[in-house]
Computed example of a mutant assay.
Amino acid sequence: MNQSIGIVLVSHSAHLASGLRELLAQIGSDRVPVAAAGGTRDGGIGTSYDLILAAIAEADRGHGVVILPDLGSSVLTALAVLEDHPRADVLLVDAPFVEGAVAAAVTAAAGADLAAVADAARQARGVAKFDDGSGPGSAPEPEVPVRSSSQVTLPANLHARPAGKLAQEAAKFSSDIRLEYGGRSIDPTGVLAVMSLGATLGSTVTVHAEGQDADTAIRTLTRILAEAE
């Protein structure tokens, strides 16, 4: 039985929604049911109440559904569906359409619950795609004093699946945790933040942790990194 949170992609374009679903299938897992509700029922540009309602049913495996709209009327139509069919386990999430969907799918594939999947999608809003030197986010982050640290040479690229597993496990610890690579330091509880490091096969990643469970966090996260494939 599928135990994953479901994801519904609501877009004005059927091609956009189906294309994103195809992308998620490549980087996610067969455990994550993703349904596309794109365009109108007659194939035009717009959104459809009936298609969204059907997509929720398609993605629902009894553990909750996250709805990700693209813009404008997709939000309004999804809200109308939820107003007529209220459910506590179906959430409309305000997140970047592509990045939020990727974060949600990877987190759901790791076995996270509804709240964690929705939060992962929301966190995608604050993750820069690259450092272009134009904003305050490009400034070096203040050095964080650490209690424990470890370096790992990656046996594979730090792509979506190991990044999702790392983020899921990092969120379980109370310690402050940082992941360093290429002169950058990020909070590894966000899957897109981990993926944005661009760490590749053979590169060295450093894990820092400060707090009561820092040693356990270091051992757990370095093991995940060392077993990436």
Rank of each mutant, 00 (worst) to 15 (best):
A217H: 02
Y49H: 15
E180L: 15
P69Y: 04
A59H: 07
G198V: 03
S175T: 14
V207F: 00
Q212I: 08
P33V: 00
I27Y: 07
T47Y: 04
I224V: 06
H12R: 08
L192T: 07
A171Y: 03
E227W: 09
V8Q: 03
T40Y: 12
A121E: 01
A217Q: 02
G6R: 01
D131N: 12
I45S: 09
D30E: 15
E210L: 14
L91Q: 06
G198T: 04
S185A: 11
A25D: 08
H15Q: 15
R31P: 00
A54D: 15
T40N: 08
H85C: 11
F130Y: 15
D215W: 07
S11T: 04
V144I: 14
A112P: 01
G133R: 03
G38Q: 01
A112Y: 00
L114H: 03
S74W: 09
P142D: 14
L71V: 11
I67D: 06
S138H: 08
R223E: 15
E58T: 15
T204R: 06
V90P: 02
T216V: 11
V106R: 02
G100I: 01
R219W: 11
G202W: 13
N2E: 12
A121K: 03
T206Y: 00
R178D: 00
S13I: 03
I218V: 15
A217T: 04
T189P: 06
T107Q: 05
V65M: 05
E210W: 10
S196A: 15
D70W: 11
S134A: 14
S13C: 05
L68W: 01
Q123G: 09
D42V: 09
E210T: 12
Q151G: 11
R21V: 07
T200S: 14
L53A: 15
I67P: 05
E83L: 12
P145V: 09
G72K: 10
H208V: 09
S148Y: 11
F130K: 12
V81Q: 01
R223G: 13
D30F: 11
D84G: 14
G133F: 05
A25L: 09
A78G: 00
L154V: 03
G126P: 04
L24D: 03
R61D: 12
S203G: 09
G62D: 07
T206I: 06
G6E: 01
L91C: 00
L179G: 10
V66N: 02
G72W: 01
A156C: 08
A37C: 10
A139D: 11
P33W: 02
S185T: 04
A88Q: 02
D70K: 05
L154G: 05
A139M: 13
A54G: 15
L71G: 02
E143D: 15
G62V: 13
H208T: 10
Q212Y: 12
L158D: 01
Q3K: 10
A54E: 15
N2K: 04
T220Q: 10
S13A: 09
T153Q: 11
G28S: 07
H159L: 13
H85W: 09
